[in-house]
Design a binder for these strands. Structure first.
Length: 262
DNA sequence: TACATATGATCAT
DNA sequence: TGATCCTATGTAA
């Protein structure tokens, strides 16, 4: 279930469970043996979420209290990646477990990530520089998203999935936010007016914050969504059947009446 | 047992 | 645009 809310929630949990501790790191599956060996036993300085990316920053080997970041573990869950949290040392990891981190009190297992790699600080900075503003971050600059939309060719529905435009939005939040703001997904991104953009940004901020708090994407009531994966079902607002179409290479769900072009 | 599916992204053509 | 990778789960055969 990985959109930005999931990632920020994981960062919060892993800060609580792992940050400031010396962590035993292994790769049960074997595909991250080298990285795990490098990090094993090191002090975890901090955990940060940016869009759909997780960054774990580690002190150099042998540093008990240092605050100089030596290496960064970069994790991106992709479509199917998942973290599981266990008390103590946890059960035997599933066969696909790429990464296991444990303090003895808490253990986390990571399976199926798109990315699990070590970065040097400059690589991490380069990666972050490619991302648009993350509505969940205090330092988010909505102006950067506005500017990106002005330069953009193509529909707003595609732009919302581009992580260099805005970071952390996936297929579910794009559909829900566009519906909530009554925006036609096919509207050219550069034709979005400023007032509507401001509402869209605020909608993304509030929807993602609810997601972090609840751990799920439920925008229209408990366990209920406006349009996402509701093809053929009635629109909550007008009763028209929700449609699914291909925008930006993924299925875009929308109400053809509530979100019709002006 | 096999296959379809999933809230993602990249690389090749 | 299409193929591909990653893993777990649910349904069909």
């Amino acid at each position: 279930m990985p959109e930005g809310h999931t990632i920020h929630r994981l960062a919060r949990d892993h800060r609580r469970d792992l940050e400031g501790r010396h962590v035993a790191v292994t790769s049960p599956q074997g595909r991250f043996d080298g990285g795990a060996a490098t990090l094993d036993g090191r002090l975890l300085l901090d955990v940060d979420a940016y869009g759909k990316h997780l960054f774990y920053r580690w002190a150099g080997p042998g540093h008990a209290t240092g605050d100089e970041v030596d290496r960064t573990l970069h994790v991106h869950l992709g479509l199917v990646g998942v973290f599981r949290r266990h008390r103590g040392t946890g059960p035997a990891p599933t066969p696909g477990t790429r990464l296991a981190m444990t303090t003895g009190a808490v253990t986390v297992h990571l399976a199926g990530p798109m990315t699990c790699e070590l970065l040097d600080p400059p690589d991490e900075q380069a990666l972050r520089a490619r991302l648009g503003p993350d509505p969940l971050r205090r330092d988010a600059a909505p102006e950067a998203m506005w500017a990106a939309l002005q330069r953009r060719r193509g529909p707003i529905g595609g732009a919302l999935l581009d992580q260099s435009v805005v970071a952390g939005i996936g297929n579910a939040y794009r559909a829900e936010a566009l519906f909530a703001c009554a925006i036609d997904p096919l509207l050219p991104a550069r034709e979005l007016d400023r007032a509507t953009f401001d509402r869209l940004w605020e909608t993304l901020v509030s929807m993602l914050r609810v997601g972090v708090r609840t751990g799920r994407i439920a925008t229209a009531g408990p366990d209920e969504r406006y349009v996402y994966r509701r093809t053929g079902e009635p629109c909550h607002r007008c009763g028209t059947a929700v449609t699914g179409s291909e925008v930006g290479g993924r299925t875009l769900y929308s109400c053809p009446v509530c979100q019709r072009g002006a």
